[in-house]
Simulated scan of single mutants.
Amino acid sequence: MAIKGSWYERDSRFIAAHHQPALLLDLALARDLDSHRLLRGSGLFHEDILGGQACISPQQFLQMIDNARRLLDADDSSFLFGQRLLPGHYGAASQALQQAGNLQQALELLVRLRALLSPLLAPRLLLDEQRAYVVWLDACGCGEQRRFLLEASMTALASCSRWLAGERLPWHFEFAHAQPRYIEQYWAHLGEDVAFARQVDVMSLPREYLTRPWPGASLTAGRVAEQQSLAQLQALGFSASLLDRLYAHLRSHIRQTPNLDSVAQAFGMSPATLKRKLGKHDSHFQEQLDLVRKHIALYLYRVKGYSNEEVAAYLQFNDSTNFRRSFKRWTGLSPSALRQLLG
C-alpha cells in the first residue's frame, strides 16, 4: 500500500512561531541580543512572533538555531533552551503531556504528538525486559544544529519528567558524538551518567519507573487535551516527518532488502522524486538505509545478545565478511570492537 503525503518536510510551514521559536528568542533577549540579528535569514520578524499567527518551517527554525548558537556563543545555551521546551505552552499538546499519569503515558504522548512537541528531532520509544529507551532521530536534516538539538531535547525530557514525577529519575544518556570540551555542562544539566561516542543518541532508565503514578495528574483533562491534539494533527494532515516515515518503513521492511525503487513506490513517488526530497534534507537513500541497519544491529547486539552470525542473518547478509565490512562502514568499528566498547 502506498504511503501518500502523510508527512512534513524541511520546508513545510507548520511550526507555530510563538511556541518553541519564541522560547529561543526569549533566551536570546534575556542575554541582551538584538532580535533582528537572531531572526536574520529566517524570513521572520519579531512582530510576526508577537502576532501569534505565523508558522515557520523546520528550515527557518534551524536558521534561527544557527544564529542563536553563533550569537550567544555560550556552552550552556542548548541546555537552558531545553529546560524551557517541555511540557511547554503549546496548547492542547502541552496540556496533555502535563496531565500524564506516569512516565510511560508521557513518553507515548511525546512520540504520538512529536510533530507538535518535538518537530526537529523524532523520539522513538523502545522497551526490553529491563529498561526503557528513548532514541532521538533527525527528523528534518538538522546538520550542524544536531548536537544543539540533542542536548536541548534530552535536557527537556529529563527536566520535564523530573518535574512531573516529583523526583529526579535515573536517566542514562548516550550520545553518538565525541565528548565535547564543555563536558561540565552535561554534568550540570543531565548528571554524570553520560557516555559519548556510542553510535546512537539515546536516553534510558529502568523500566520500573514507567508505571509509577505521578502526583497531580488529571487523567480526564489529559484525555480531552490528547483528543484535541490528535484533531490538530489531523487538520495538519501529518504526524511525522518524511525522514521519520522513511525510517519506520525501512525498519519494518529491513528483512525484505528494501531498495530505492521499492521504497519510492511505497511512498507513491518516482525514485527520482524520492532522491530529490532526500537531497533537500541533506541525505540520500543509502545513508538512511545504513542508519536503520546500524540501529537494528546495535539493538540486536546490546539488547538481544545476538552473535555476529545471527545479526548478519537477520539483516540478510549471506557473507559474514561482507557484513563485518558493512558494519565497520556504518559505525567505524568492527563487531568485536563494539562488544568491547559496550562492555
Rank of each mutant, 00 (worst) to 15 (best):
L341V: 13
D73E: 11
G268R: 05
S35L: 01
D282F: 12
C142F: 01
A17P: 01
R325T: 10
F267H: 03
E167V: 12
D319H: 15
R146Q: 13
S12W: 06
P119N: 06
T211F: 07
A225T: 09
V303G: 01
L333E: 14
R112S: 12
H249L: 15
A139N: 00
R302Y: 01
L236F: 14
R168Q: 10
H177A: 13
F323E: 03
G143N: 08
S336A: 14
I183Q: 08
K294R: 14
M1I: 07
L342G: 03
G82I: 03
A221K: 14
S307D: 04
R147L: 02
L298F: 03
L109N: 08
L150D: 08
Q265A: 14
A96M: 08
P180Y: 07
L103I: 10
L242H: 05
E226F: 10
G52L: 05
Q179K: 15
K280I: 05
L113H: 07
R131C: 09
L50D: 04
S204L: 08
F45P: 00
A165F: 04
Y299Q: 08
L126R: 12
A272C: 06
F323R: 01
Y314A: 11
D75M: 04
A152H: 07
S153F: 10
L25P: 00
S118V: 04
W136K: 05
A178R: 15
A231Q: 13
Q234K: 10
D11E: 10
S6M: 11
G41M: 01
A132K: 06
L338Q: 09
G191S: 02
S159L: 00
L169V: 01
L39C: 04
P170T: 03
R70D: 11
L29H: 00
T257Y: 06
L219T: 11
F285R: 03
A156F: 04
F196A: 09
P206L: 02
Y133D: 09
